[in-house]
């Protein structure tokens, strides 16, 4: 019997597979298809202080082995999430959930995290710092170690739950951002968010996406994500959640070897709604094939010896 359990900041997950924020809503579309309690946990839709409609459409473009999205953090706002989504979720998901939070100012992040801190269902906070900072000319928090640390400290001050800072890959030096978050008290690092990309329609000669640019995800980005997880694992002592292009049990293990304690699956859910269930079901077979008894032993395995 292989052991797929991993421990994420003191909470044991049955397996390391976590649907990534923005590809799994608040879970109900998937719970209608299969029992999502087979998941390690899931990271729910990026939630902000106020409700957001998001960007104009088209918001989606296809790429070779991937896609670009510019949804723009559409969500009903933290109050509606607490009043409606979490009670609804309780009916079909019986494990601690990962609350994904976004903001446009340090105060936004602190406010939303403080609200979610009170919710028993929330096991971890995953703080997305790829958003533009409205007080700093719209520059993303995630590209500046100082701003990333500021958000980390502000969130840590309002919660006792483990805080995972979700990093943007659109930076020159991912390690410096990860270290800044660690020093500011982060309990873990999530990476990577999407890579900034674009497509142009040959018929209209204009960008496909109304917002012109968007976040590139899908299997094409796996090597980039893997490299960043590897670099960050070497530089920090806190756990890393790896994500980016993961679509198979093999990818999950590869990500863990690079240094991930748990692994998120994103765009794959949109193509195959059963992707996470299938990956979890396939893990024992792939573990046996590579003579792995215990997944926890694989974490950072590529760094040793």
């Amino acid at each position: 019997m292989v052991d797929t359990k991993v421990t994420l900041s003191g909470i044991v997950l049955d397996n390391p597979v976590i649907p990534a924020s923005g590809t799994f809503g608040y879970g109900k579309e998937f719970a209608a298809l299969y029992d999502i309690n087979c998941l390690g946990t899931f990271s729910f839709k990026g939630t902000t202080r106020e409700a957001r409609f998001g960007n104009p459409t088209p918001r989606i473009a296809e790429c070779n082995a991937g896609m670009i999205n510019a949804v723009g953090l559409q969500n009903p706002g933290v109050e509606a999430v607490i009043a409606h989504e979490l009670p609804e979720m309780k009916k079909f998901f019986h494990k601690p959930v990962m609350a994904n939070v976004s903001g446009f100012s340090v105060e936004d992040y602190a406010y939303t995290c403080a609200m979610l801190d009170k919710e028993e269902q929330v096991g971890w906070l995953e703080v997305n710092i790829s958003c533009p900072n409205v007080h700093n000319g719209g520059m993303s928090f995630g590209v500046d170690p100082k701003a990333a640390a500021e958000v980390t400290a502000a969130v840590k001050a309002v919660t006792t739950k483990p805080v995972y800072m979700k990093l943007s890959p659109n930076v020159t030096d991912i390690v410096s951002i990860a270290k800044a978050c660690e020093e500011a008290g982060a309990d873990g690092i999530s990476l990577i968010n999407t890579l900034l990309g674009m497509r142009i329609d040959l018929r209209t000669k204009k960008p496909v996406i109304a917002n012109k640019m968007g976040g590139f995800s899908g299997s094409a980005i796996l090597p980039v994500a893997l490299r960043m997880v590897y670099q960050v694992y070497e530089a920090v002592k806190i756990p890393v959640i790896g994500m980016g292009g993961v679509s198979s049990a093999e990818d999950v293990i590869e990500m863990m070897l690079a240094g991930a304690t748990a692994v998120e699956v994103g765009a794959a859910n949109l193509v195959n709604p059963y992707a996470c269930r299938d990956i979890i079901a396939d893990l024992p077979r792939v573990m046996e094939k590579y003579r792995i008894n215990n997944l926890t032993d694989m974490i950072g395995g590529a760094h040793h010896g």
């Binding site: 923005g22 590809t23 799994f24 809503g25 579309e29 998937f30 839709k45 409609f53 998001g54 459409t57 088209p58 918001r59 989606i60 473009a61 896609m67 999205n69 949804v71 559409q74 496909v208 859910n269 949109l270 193509v271 709604p273």
Partner: peptide, 14 residues
């Protein structure tokens, strides 16, 4: 509308 998933998960076609 241009869609990502087609079943309500990605909010691509709002």
């Amino acid at each position: 509308e241009r869609m990502g998933c087609g079943f309500g998960a990605c909010m691509g076609c709002s």
